[in-house]
Amino acid sequence: MTYHVPRGGLPPQTALTTGGDGRARFTEAYAVIPARTQSDITASYLPDWDGMRMWVLARPLSGFAETFSWYVAEVAPGGGSEDPEADPEAEAVLFVVDGHLSLRADGSTYELEPGSYAYLPQVADWSLRNASEATATFHWIRKAYHRVEGLPEPDVLVTHERDVEPVEMPGTDGVWSTTRFVPTDDLSHDMHVNIVSFAPGGTIPFPETHVMEHGLYVLEGKAVYLLNTDWVEVEAGDFMWLRAFCPQACYAGGPGPFRYLLYKDVNRHAPLT
C-alpha cells in the first residue's frame, strides 16, 4: 500500500503552464484539481492549530461541493491542536498518509500511522498532535451530520486499512474492490469514506449515474476517468469532485494499482428545501 503525499514547493519558472497544472478543470458537473496545484502559494492555515498548513480541495460553495469539505493537512513535529474543530455540527474522517499522529478522542488515545482511518462523530471531543520528529500528513473530510429521530448516532471508530478486508465488486475476480471502513447497512452513518482499488486494466464498465455526491483523491497509480462527457487522465495526488448524477467511469492504466480515497453522502432522504 502506498499513499501519495503532497510536498508543496513551486514549479520552476521554466515549467509550462499547460503541463501538470494545465489539467485543472472546473465545470458545473465536475472539477479536477491536479496534484501540482497543491503548492506553497495555495496552502491555507487555521486558528487554534500549531505548525499546520493545509490544502482545501473542496468546500460547500454554489456550483461546487454541497455536502462536504476536504482538506489535506500537513503537521510539523510538535504541531497540532487541542481544539481542532470550530463547528459543533461537523463530523469528520481522518486518513493518514504520512508520518505519525496522536489522536485523543472522548478520553481515549490512538496512535495513527499511514493507512490509519478515524471516524469522529460531531459530538466527539478530540485533539490531534504530532509528537514525532517528522512531518505528518492526513486527509480531513468534514460534513454536517444529519440526525434522524430514533436512530443512534455513530461512535468514534479508529482502524487501519490493513485490518479491513476489501470487498470484491461482483463479477470482477478482484480486479475492482472497495475497502469499506463502515458497514453499508449501518444507517447511523450519513457519509462513507472508502478506498476504491483497481488492478491494471480494471474498469468501471458503465457510466455510474447516481444521487451521491463524490470527492475522490488518487492515492496511487493513474487512470483515464470519465467525468460527465469528458475522458480525463488522472494520477496520484489529483482530486476530483463530482456533483450528484454526474456520469462516471474509469480505465486503470497500470503499470501498478490505481487507488483512490472516495467520499459520498448516503443513507438519508433527499432534502426538499
Score class of each variant (00 low, 15 high):
42 T>H: 07
39 S>Y: 14
47 P>N: 08
23 R>T: 08
42 T>I: 13
24 A>Q: 04
58 A>W: 04
22 G>E: 09
46 L>P: 04
41 I>H: 09
54 M>T: 13
24 A>M: 07
26 F>V: 14
11 P>M: 05
8 G>C: 01
39 S>L: 11
13 Q>D: 08
42 T>F: 14
55 W>L: 00
10 L>S: 09
56 V>L: 09
26 F>A: 15
33 I>N: 13
56 V>N: 10
23 R>G: 02
20 G>H: 09
44 S>P: 00
24 A>R: 06
16 L>R: 11
44 S>E: 10
13 Q>M: 08
30 Y>T: 09
55 W>S: 00
52 M>F: 02
30 Y>G: 07
47 P>G: 09
15 A>P: 05
50 D>M: 00
56 V>H: 09
17 T>G: 12
34 P>L: 03
13 Q>Y: 06
24 A>W: 07
52 M>W: 00
27 T>M: 14
11 P>T: 13
9 G>E: 01
36 R>V: 08
47 P>V: 08
27 T>D: 14
57 L>G: 00
52 M>R: 03
39 S>V: 10
55 W>Y: 07
55 W>F: 07
32 V>P: 08
29 A>Q: 14
33 I>K: 14
38 Q>I: 03
35 A>T: 05
51 G>V: 02
46 L>S: 05
9 G>V: 01
35 A>C: 07
17 T>L: 14
55 W>R: 02
47 P>L: 04
19 G>F: 05
20 G>E: 12
15 A>M: 09
41 I>P: 08
40 D>V: 02
34 P>D: 04
46 L>C: 02
52 M>A: 04
10 L>T: 05
46 L>M: 03
21 D>W: 03
28 E>Y: 15
53 R>M: 06
40 D>Q: 03
11 P>V: 11
14 T>G: 11
25 R>M: 15
8 G>R: 06
51 G>A: 04
11 P>Q: 06
37 T>S: 12
16 L>C: 12
27 T>L: 15
28 E>W: 15
50 D>V: 00
25 R>H: 09
21 D>V: 00
51 G>W: 06
20 G>Y: 11
19 G>H: 05
29 A>E: 14
9 G>T: 00
40 D>R: 03
54 M>N: 14
